[in-house]
């Protein structure tokens, strides 16, 4: 078992503690008793033990991936602040993309349908229609005169 690794010497531990690599690793691992803190942030005793374990693993020459795997095998994916993609959490990872796809599809369909309902006329066509309304096919001057006569006369005073 790898937890039987020897403790690094005080000098080695000091150097490792100051290393950028340790800082990065400790900030990507979760303290399990204070779940919203990283190993780097937490002052809990377990976090101290886990930091010590990380130091031992680093001193023994393990790379970051191996150290993370070591901890995941014991404490579960939960120790990782950035969980890996696997069969269990595939739904969670795919969720946003699936939702966006559904939303996009719904939006596309919705806007397209609205487009179809809207009459697509350009300025000339509208002019022509208005023109047609003014001179209905088969209509005559007299019919237009009737229409204009039926309009409320501007001369009439409602008061």
């Amino acid at each position: 078992m790898s937890s039987t690794l020897p403790d690094p010497s005080p000098e080695q531990a000091e150097a490792l503690l100051r290393s950028e690599r340790f800082r990065k690793l400790a900030s990507e691992l979760r303290c399990l008793v204070c779940q919203n803190q990283t190993l780097a942030d937490s002052s809990a005793e377990l976090a101290g033990d886990l930091r010590q374990e990380v130091l031992r693993q680093m001193a023994s020459g393990k790379d970051d991936a191996a150290i993370k795997t070591h901890l995941v095998e014991r404490f579960g994916e939960f120790v990782l602040y950035r969980p890996t993609l696997n069969a269990h959490n595939l739904g969670l990872w795919a969720g946003p993309a699936v939702l966006a796809a559904f939303g996009g599809l719904a939006m596309w369909r919705f806007t397209r349908r609205r487009h179809l309902h809207k009459p697509q006329l350009n300025f000339e066509q509208v002019e022509a229609l208005l023109e047609q309304d003014d001179h209905p096919p088969g209509g005559s001057k007299s019919s237009r005169a009737v229409v204009s006569r039926s309009e409320p006369s501007s001369g009439r005073n409602p008061g």
Partner: peptide, 12 residues
Amino acid sequence: AGRAGLDYGVYG
């Protein structure tokens, strides 16, 4: 030292 605890994933 809690080393076996670490191997058993003891956190509480």
